[in-house]
């Protein structure tokens, strides 16, 4: 996978798959900026079901302005969330 660089604008997929995942509902479909690349980690969506979590996925920290998450988001507030690469697309 080509991956995203720090500073890249990314959108979280607006998807509602069944089963375990680590993507909070409140950021789905929202656009933010890559704050750092955390490295490769085992996939929690398969680890949760007794599998080995391979292949590993790149984990990003994405920064969202609060008012991009919520209509009444507070000015001067950012929320940073760890998201795995398959949940992100270029924005």
């Amino acid at each position: 996978m080509s991956g995203f660089d720090v500073g890249a604008s990314v959108r979280v997929r607006l998807a509602y798959p069944t089963g375990h995942c680590r993507t909070p509902f409140y950021c789905r479909g929202k656009t933010g900026v890559v704050e750092r690349v955390c490295g490769a980690f085992r996939n929690p969506e398969t680890l949760a079901y007794g599998q080995d979590g391979e292949p590993q996925l790149t984990l990003y920290r994405v920064r969202f302005a609060a008012n991009d998450l919520w209509a009444d988001g507070e000015p001067g507030v950012a929320v940073e969330i760890e998201l795995y690469e398959p949940w992100l697309e270029s924005a």
Binding site: G76, E80, E82
Partner: peptide, 15 residues
């Protein structure tokens, strides 16, 4: 102060 920005860190995964 209102001038202080706030960063909320949601530890959703491995960090």
């Amino acid at each position: 102060p209102d001038s202080t920005r706030i960063r909320v860190h949601d530890s959703t995964a491995d960090m």
